[in-house]
């Protein structure tokens, strides 16, 4: 259901044209399915130096330590992804992002008065997809050079990389053979079309993916 913000403007998914009357874009073929997670919250958190006062304040709000090892993530809702040194991406459920961003900003302003911390709400700038099923890894491997072997890339890891030459953030989801894929809004339709085409070899489409010429 489209969400409304205080401006009264209707919030629209970048994949709305694939919704086909449903509440999100979905497609599947054989042992793989792709589902849009519409309106997921995404927050970018940055600071020049991650001091202990900063890290403790962030942990207070998130309920878990922000990961300091490259390409790792912690927690689920919100998930906290290492994005770069002293930079994290927080992925929240829809409509939880604004409150979390405000809480973080307030807590950090109290703990670090006068210091610069960047808390940026990116929710409307990203599309978030869930790619699941036994063939999910094979599907991603068609356009991604990352080593996706579960021994190398399992729950708790994350990576910014390229998928079919498009910058994406990718991480395995908890307790299932599924991956979460974040892509810039303007690339969402391209990635959707690419996935629709790339997944054909895994079986008959259960539902004809719209927007792909056969």
């Amino acid at each position: 259901m489209p969400d409304t913000v205080s401006t009264g403007l209707r919030r629209t998914s970048p994949l709305a044209r694939y919704w086909q009357g449903a509440d999100a874009a979905r497609m599947s073929a054989g042992a793989v399915s792709v589902e849009e997670l519409p309106f997921q919250g995404v927050i970018r958190l940055q600071r020049r130096e991650a001091t202990s006062a900063f890290m403790n304040s962030v942990a207070d709000i998130l309920g878990a330590e922000a990961p300091v090892d490259p390409n790792t993530c912690a927690g689920e809702s919100p998930a906290c992804l290492w994005a770069a040194p002293n930079e994290w991406l927080l992925v929240t459920a829809p409509d939880k992002d604004r409150a979390l961003a405000i809480a973080l900003q307030q807590r950090l302003d109290e703990a670090l008065p006068g210091e610069t911390v960047a808390v940026a709400l990116l929710s409307d700038a990203r599309a978030v997809l869930k790619i699941s099923g036994a063939a999910a890894r094979d599907l991603l491997a068609k356009g991604c050079s990352l080593d996706l072997d579960p021994g190398q890339f399992s729950y708790g890891k994350c990576a910014a990389t390229l998928l079919e030459q498009v910058p994406v953030t990718l991480y395995p989801m908890a307790n299932e053979s599924a991956y979460c894929l974040m892509v810039d809004r303007s690339y969402a339709a391209f990635i959707w079309d690419w996935l629709a085409h790339a997944m054909r070899e895994f079986g008959e489409a259960a539902k004809s993916p719209d927007g792909v010429s056969s």
Binding site: P70, N71, S145, L146, A159, T161, L162, Q165
Partner: peptide
């Protein structure tokens, strides 16, 4: 130095 080995295209 942070992410380890990645394809040159990145």
């Amino acid at each position: 130095p942070w992410c380890g080995k990645r394809n040159e295209t990145e």
